[in-house]
Design a binder for these strands. Sequence first.
DNA 1: TCTATTTTGTTCATATATGTACAAAACGGA
DNA 2: TCCGTTTTGTACATATATGAACAAAATAGA
Lengths: 196, 196
Amino acid sequence: MGRPVKFDQDAALDTVVDEFWRNGYEASSVKALSEKLGITRSSFYNTFGTREALYKKALHKYFETAPSRAFGETSDGVSAKALITKTFKDICRTRAADNRGCMAVNGVAELAATHAELGPLLKEAILGSTADLENVIKYGIKRKELPDTINIRATALALQNLMMGLNVLCKVLPDEAELWSSAEATLKGLALLDDH
Amino acid sequence: MGRPVKFDQDAALDTVVDEFWRNGYEASSVKALSEKLGITRSSFYNTFGTREALYKKALHKYFETAPSRAFGETSDGVSAKALITKTFKDICRTRAADNRGCMAVNGVAELAATHAELGPLLKEAILGSTADLENVIKYGIKRKELPDTINIRATALALQNLMMGLNVLCKVLPDEAELWSSAEATLKGLALLDDH
DNA sequence: TCTATTTTGTTCATATATGTACAAAACGGA
DNA sequence: TCCGTTTTGTACATATATGAACAAAATAGA
């Protein structure tokens, strides 16, 4: 029923994620995105609606594969330190490979202060990530792996800072070993490094 | 000699710095900037040249008052720990007050991967800041205040991460006490906190 | 007052931007 | 084969974007 779509809509969304991620929101115009996808703006609007709506969809899709999603899954029997150490190693490896950084961090830097719709959305994404980190620390305390005297909030924010810092630093210094050396120093200082 | 300028060019540059800082490069069009300044585009081009050239000038002006410039001035008799602690406190206070973050960090997030001219400029600015931090640590070692076993590079990058992280976090969490609690935890872990 | 100089205002050229409107094309099913 | 439905292509309307070109205005000094 109806004329068939002439392009792969799922693949198109992947491309869109990469474009927003790499070039940011404002630099990714509907014209630029449509040309990248090899479709007309007409098809674009028909498929995705407005650019703003598409960015939301793209951000959601991004989070499905972001390294930091690991902090939302603590129920494995894996220790908090191991989870934290492995995830930060993942971040360093992934971010050094391409220099896209984190789509949410890029978005916050670009839009948090100015975009009425996307600004709050991006802020919530970051705050959600901090909440995940707090849970990881609580999980470590529950496991008696971390002392219950630890300042949960301050430590979670310190990890959040580290993560965001790495996601900016990777654009300037795309070197996995250097990124990791800095992360390792910070994690060791916070007594959250799993070292064997 | 010649028709007099009808606006304060120094004040205009300050306004331009704030606009680029707050809204980023792409969102600050010549039209938008000119309207903000209350001058025509004609006067704009006559005074500042291209937008790209103006951004460079604005970035330079920004660095004259950025909190992190303190890391470039180690010869005071002030201890390295005191300098680091005070400067990070400054950053937390300043960044919580407005939510502009750091102009260079914002610029890197927006332009590092895409802008052929401004990208490298911004990257160098960040790398220069890291070099300053390395010097502060070397200064601390020379003063026997820090152990000579410290990993200078990794520690400097850890501080760089912290600084950039704070400059993103302040956009999401504009709260001086929370920002400082996270910075304090990281500095303490790195044995760089000056506590009395 | 005339002139050289500089800023300012206006116009030009061209490209991009968003979103809508509507005709043309391509299918499934009646 | 006709028809309803959906995508696609094209056109429209309007706004913004950069930068150059040139005329008009406003000064200082000859």
